[in-house]
Amino acid sequence: MNTHISQGQEASYHYKLVRRAIERLDASDEPVSLEVLAAEMSLSPAYLQRLFSRWAGVSPKRYQQFLALDHARSLLRSHHSTLDTAVETGLSGGGRLHDLFVRWEAMSPGNYAKGGAGLTIKTGWFDSPFGRVLAMGTDIGLCGMAFGEETGEAATYDDMAARWPNAKFERDETHLQPWVDAAFGGGGERSLHLIGAPFQIKVWEALLNVPTGHVTTYSDIARAVGSPKAVRAVGTAVGKNPVSWLIPCHRALRKSGELGGYHWGTPVKRAMLAYESAELEATLAK
């Protein structure tokens, strides 16, 4: 078994533990101790502590605070990006946006309207910190990333393939592996091929300007793309984001601080926000 797979499987196992913790914490009105949580998961407290610390960079007790429902509201108060910088840069695209250092290229509106006709898209399933992820990519870069833990692998694949009904799909993990590694911090260039309508691409580009550990609102995005009254349309475009995680639609919240929906399951969204919050805290503590 190669190193890429073993590391990915380990990260996926960590996510499954966190997912179980999310479900347990959601069912409780009181904090759950490490000892109780470990016993319910049939793990020793010390082992669970190590696994959580390795996955999130913080203790399980601190991590539970990140997973609390009101954490989103806290993020809005302390790490809220208004996307003013996105407006100032003119959303020109093609550059290295914020801390993601993403290189991207958009498909022309005419080609997008053809439903992917003439396009060959490579596909493959990989392990990730948030469970199994479906990656899709052209010769330019990733055009799709979707998480199948909540929706199931078959339904996830059908959902993504239906977005480009006239494209040709080929299984090819080798082609995609470097981009998937880069997406989850393994180094290398994070290359994207955005396939969407012009308004959708403007919204996705705005999302790329939201830093790790920060959040934004649908209203902020609407202002950033020059359509302040199009909040509902922005929400629809966010929901149709084809490259989850790299285009961080999980960082978009309602103005009230509620998480809102997430196409691949709210537990995945909450785990992503918690993961990034822990990462940001660890960085600031250095």
Rank of each mutant, 00 (worst) to 15 (best):
191 S>P: 00
276 E>C: 07
190 R>Y: 06
272 M>K: 11
197 A>H: 12
218 Y>L: 14
215 V>E: 12
210 V>A: 10
183 A>Q: 10
215 V>K: 13
208 L>P: 08
174 T>E: 14
203 V>I: 08
255 K>F: 01
207 L>S: 04
201 I>M: 15
182 A>Y: 11
225 V>Y: 05
191 S>V: 01
259 L>I: 08
229 K>M: 12
261 G>T: 12
221 I>H: 13
258 E>F: 05
202 K>P: 03
244 S>I: 01
273 L>E: 03
248 P>D: 10
200 Q>S: 15
188 G>I: 03
182 A>T: 10
189 E>R: 14
254 R>A: 01
188 G>D: 07
230 A>H: 14
231 V>G: 04
206 A>H: 10
275 Y>S: 11
211 P>L: 03
213 G>E: 06
283 T>M: 07
179 W>S: 13
267 P>H: 05
236 T>K: 15
253 L>G: 12
177 Q>P: 00
176 L>D: 09
210 V>H: 09
245 W>L: 14
236 T>V: 15
222 A>M: 11
230 A>G: 04
255 K>V: 12
237 A>L: 07
283 T>D: 03
251 R>W: 00
253 L>T: 11
255 K>E: 15
213 G>Q: 04
196 G>K: 10
259 L>C: 07
192 L>W: 05
189 E>A: 15
258 E>S: 14
232 R>M: 06
234 V>C: 12
252 A>R: 01
270 R>E: 02
269 K>E: 03
168 K>I: 02
261 G>D: 14
213 G>Y: 02
239 G>S: 15
250 H>M: 01
255 K>T: 14
262 Y>D: 03
220 D>L: 00
177 Q>E: 15
250 H>A: 04
192 L>H: 07
233 A>F: 01
202 K>R: 15
258 E>L: 08
224 A>F: 08
221 I>S: 13
187 G>I: 07
272 M>C: 13
184 F>A: 01
237 A>M: 09
231 V>Q: 12
211 P>F: 05
191 S>A: 14
220 D>T: 01
203 V>P: 08
196 G>H: 10
201 I>W: 03
240 K>I: 00
248 P>W: 09
223 R>W: 10
243 V>S: 09
251 R>Y: 00
204 W>P: 04
225 V>P: 07
251 R>Q: 15
173 E>S: 06
244 S>Y: 04
267 P>V: 02
277 S>V: 01
268 V>T: 14
257 G>Y: 05
281 E>V: 05
220 D>S: 14
211 P>Y: 06
214 H>M: 04
214 H>D: 06
189 E>W: 08
170 E>H: 04
180 V>K: 10
225 V>R: 08
240 K>V: 00
168 K>C: 03
196 G>R: 09
229 K>V: 04
178 P>A: 08
275 Y>G: 02
270 R>S: 01
236 T>P: 00
245 W>C: 02
224 A>N: 09
